[in-house]
Design a protein around this nucleic acid. Structure first.
Length: 565
RNA sequence: GCGUCUGUAGCUCAGUGGAUAGAGCAAUCGCCUCCUAAGCGAUAGGUCGAAGGUUCAACUCCUUUCAGAUGCGCCA
C-alpha cells in the first residue's frame, strides 16, 4: 500500500530544507477541483522565510524536486505546487484491494483490543415510538456499525425508560380504567390512552398523584402486584418496539434500562457523600458546580428520592466496571448538553480518570411544520406509519417501473425504510429539522433509493458481464470519469475513520452519495459491455469495485443493498 | 438574565484558514432502436445574517450585534 500523501511529503522534504517532514505533510492539501491535481502544496508560508514571492518559491522548489513514479505530473500553478497521481499505480492498487477484501474493504484495525459502548434509541416503555426517536436510534446504530467496522469491540445498549413515577401513574390508571384485552391487542395506544386520562383526572383530583407515588414506592419495594403489572407493560411495549427495530434492521446487545440500575443507586449516593462532593440545600442534596461555570446539579430531592442524573452516574460506573470502556458514547438530543456536562464533571470530581471517556453525542430536534413534537397536543407522527408509507410508495414505483421484479415486498421494505433512514443520516446531526412527508417520500437526487439504484445498476451490469477478472490492463481506466470514481473509492477508509472520530454518520452518507454520482456519470459516459474484451474487463473490474464499496457504505448507515430494484 | 447550538442559492443542505463558495430539490431546455430514465447533461440562481478585528489569505478564527432553536433544583 502506497501512501501518496507521505510520498508528496518526502519529495518536498528533500527539496525544502527549512521545514521538516511532519510540518510539510500538515500543509499538504487536496485541491477542491480535481483538475488541478490530487495534492497541492501552498507556498505562502515560505514567503517570510525566503523573502520571496510564493510564486517564485513554488517555481524554485519544483525545479529541485526529483520526482518519482508515484506522480505523473508535478506542476506549478501560481503559488501552489500541484501533484498528479500516477493513475495506473493507484487504479491497480485500489481495485485489486477492493476485489480482494470485498465486504471488508474500508475496515481497519484502528480499534483492536478497545471496547466501545454506544447507547442509543432509549425509548420509553408505554409511550409511542415516534418520529423523534429515529434520530438517536439510527445515529447510534450507525456509529455502532462504524466502530465495529474499524475494529473496536462494540456494545450497543438500549437504555430503556422503564422506571420512575410514571409507572406508578400507569398502574393506578390501569387499575381504574384499564382493559387487559385491549392492551394485549393494541398496547401502546391503549396504555397511552389511560396515561393521558390519568393526567386529565389528576388535575381535578390530586389524590391520584399520591396514589401513583405509593404505587411506585411499592414497585421499588418489589411488591408482587406492582412488579407483575410493570413487567407486563414492559413486555407488551417491547414487543411493539421490536417490530419497528426489525423493520429498521437495528440491533442491540443489551436492553439494560433505568430499572436495571435502580438497586445500585444508593451505593453511588453514599460514595458521593463519603467523597464530600455533595452539600445539603434545604433538605435536598446538590453538587456545587459554580466554579466550573455550570449551574449546581440537584442529586436528591428533599424527600430523599433520587433523580435522573443519578441513573447516568450509576450506569457510567457500572459500565466502566463491566466493560472497561475506551469510550462510552451517549447518543442523546442536544437539549441534554448541560445534563451531560454536569454528570461527567461529577464523575471527574469523584476522582475517576475515565470521566472524559464518556462522550455525549448530541443532535438537533425534529419538529413538524405545525410546531414541535408533542404527544399531548396530538402533534405526533408514529415512526412505523412513516416507514409503512415509504414502503407502500416504493411498492407503487416498483409496480410501475419493474412489475416483474421478484421478491417485491422485501425489496420495497429495503428501499422504503432505507429512504427514511438515509434522510435521517444525511445532514450533520447537530441540525434541527422539520419533518415533511414530501421530502421523506422523495426518491430522486441525493436519496437512499438513488444510491441503492446505482448499486442495483452495477449489479445488473455484472450479471451480464461474462468476463474473467484477470490480467487487467488498468491503463485503460485513465479517462476522467473512470479515474474520478477510482480516486473516490480510495478515500473510503479515511471517511469512515473520520466519521468515527467526529461521531458523524452523515460523512458516510454523503460519501456514498457522491460515489454514486461519480458512478452514474461513468456509467453514462463509458459503455461497459463493449466488444473490446480488454476494455470490457477493466471497466467491469471498476464496476465490481464500486459495487463492493457502495454496499459496504450503505451497510454502515444500516441500509441494505438490493441487487435488483 | 445567563449558557449552548444554528444562520451559505427560492427550498433542503455540503464546505480541512488557501485557487473560480458546491450538491440535490424546485424552474427552463435537452437525452431512452443503446449495460435498469429511481438515471445523465445544459441554463439560471450567492453581499456566505450584519458590523468590526486578526492574517500574506476568512464562509472558516476572535469581538460585538441581529434572528431562530434549546437549556438553566426537586420531570426524564
Amino acid at each position: 500500500m502506497i501512501d501518496f500523501k507521505s510520498s508528496v511529503g518526502e519529495l518536498l522534504a528533500n527539496a525544502i530544507k527549512e521545514l521538516d517532514f511532519d510540518e510539510i505533510v500538515k500543509n499538504v492539501e487536496v485541491p477542491k477541483n480535481t483538475e488541478m491535481g490530487d495534492f497541492a502544496f501552498p507556498c505562502f508560508k515560505l514567503a517570510s522565510i525566503y523573502k520571496k514571492s510564493p510564486n517564485m518559491i513554488a517555481k524554485e522548489i519544483v525545479e529541485k524536486i526529483e520526482g518519482n513514479e508515484n506522480f505523473e505530473e508535478i506542476i506549478v500553478a501560481g503559488p501552489y505546487i500541484n501533484f498528479k497521481i500516477n493513475k495506473n499505480i493507484l487504479s491497480k492498487m485500489i481495485i485489486e484491494e477492493v476485489l480482494d477484501k470485498k465486504e471488508r474493504f474500508g475496515s481497519s484495525k484502528t480499534g483492536e483490543g478497545k471496547n466501545v459502548i454506544v447507547e442509543y434509541s432509549s425509548v420509553n416503555i408505554a409511550k409511542p415510538f415516534h418520529m423523534g426517536h429515529i434520530r438517536s436510534t439510527m445515529i447510534g446504530y450507525s456509529l455502532y456499525k462504524i466502530y465495529k467496522f474499524i475494529g473496536y469491540n462494540t456494545t450497543g445498549i438500549n437504555h430503556l425508560g422503564d422506571y420512575g413515577t410514571q409507572f406508578g401513574k400507569l398502574i393506578v390508571a390501569y387499575k381504574l380504567w384499564g382493559n387487559e384485552k385491549a392492551i394485549e391487542l393494541n398496547p401502546i395506544p391503549e396504555l397511552l390512552k389511560i396515561y393521558v386520562k390519568f393526567h386529565e383526572e389528576a388535575e381535578k383530583d390530586p389524590e391520584l398523584d399520591n396514589q401513583a407515588r405509593v404505587w411506585f414506592t411499592k414497585l421499588e419495594g418489589k411488591d408482587e402486584e406492582a412488579t407483575k403489572l410493570w413487567t407486563w407493560f414492559k413486555k407488551v411495549s417491547l414487543k411493539e418496539f421490536e417490530r419497528v427495530y426489525e423493520m429498521l434492521g437495528v440491533h442491540f446487545d443489551s436492553f439494560a434500562g433505568e430499572s436495571f440500575y435502580s438497586d445500585m443507586m444508593p451505593d453511588l449516593l453514599n460514595e458521593m457523600r463519603e467523597k464530600n462532593i455533595m452539600s445539603d440545600d434545604d433538605g435536598a442534596e446538590i453538587v456545587k458546580l459554580e466554579e466550573y461555570d455550570m449551574p449546581n446539579a440537584l442529586i436528591t430531592k428533599s424527600d430523599g428520592s433520587s433523580l435522573y442524573i443519578t441513573r447516568d452516574l450509576t450506569a457510567a460506573k457500572y459500565r466502566k466496571n463491566e466493560y472497561d470502556f475506551y469510550k462510552n458514547i451517549y447518543v442523546v438530543g442536544s437539549q441534554q448538553n448541560l445534563h451531560f456536562k454536569q454528570w461527567i464533571k461529577i464523575i471527574d470530581l469523584m476522582g475517576y480518570d475515565w470521566a472524559y471517556d464518556c462522550v455525549h453525542v448530541g443532535f438537533g430536534m425534529v419538529a413538524l411544520e405545525e410546531g414541535s413534537l408533542s404527544t399531548r397536543s396530538g402533534r405526533v407522527i408514529f415512526l412505523e406509519d412513516v416507514l409503512n408509507k415509504a414502503v407502500e410508495k416504493t411498492k407503487d414505483i416498483i409496480n410501475e417501473k419493474n412489475p416483474d421484479l421478484e421478491n417485491k415486498d422485501e425489496i420495497a421494505r429495503q428501499v422504503g425504510v432505507g429512504s427514511v433512514v438515509f434522510q435521517e443520516l444525511s445532514n450533520n446531526r447537530i441540525k434541527d429539522y422539520t419533518f415533511s412527508w414530501e421530502e421523506t417520500l422523495s426518491f430522486e437526487g441525493e436519496t437512499g433509493p438513488y444510491v441503492q439504484y446505482s448499486h442495483a445498476r452495477a449489479c445488473s451490469v455484472l450479471r451480464n458481464a461474462n468476463v474473467k477478472l484477470e490480467n487487467i490492463d488498468y491503463s485503460l481506466l485513465n479517462d476522467k470519469y473512470s479515474f474520478d470514481l477510482i480516486r473516490e473509492i480510495s478515500k473510503f477508509n479515511g471517511v469512515i475513520e473520520k466519521a468515527a472520530i467526529k461521531y458523524e454518520p452523515s460523512l458516510v452518507t454523503r460519501y456514498i452519495t457522491h460515489l454514486a454520482q461519480l458512478f452514474n456519470r461513468f456509467y453514462h459516459e463509458n459503455p461497459i459491455l463493449v466488444g473490446d474484451m480488454e476494455l470490457r474487463k477493466s471497466r467491469v473490474a471498476l464496476v465490481n469495485a464500486f459495487k463492493h464499496v457502495v454496499k459496504n457504505g450503505l451497510s454502515l448507515i444500516a441500509l441494505e443493498a438490493p441487487e435488483k430494484m
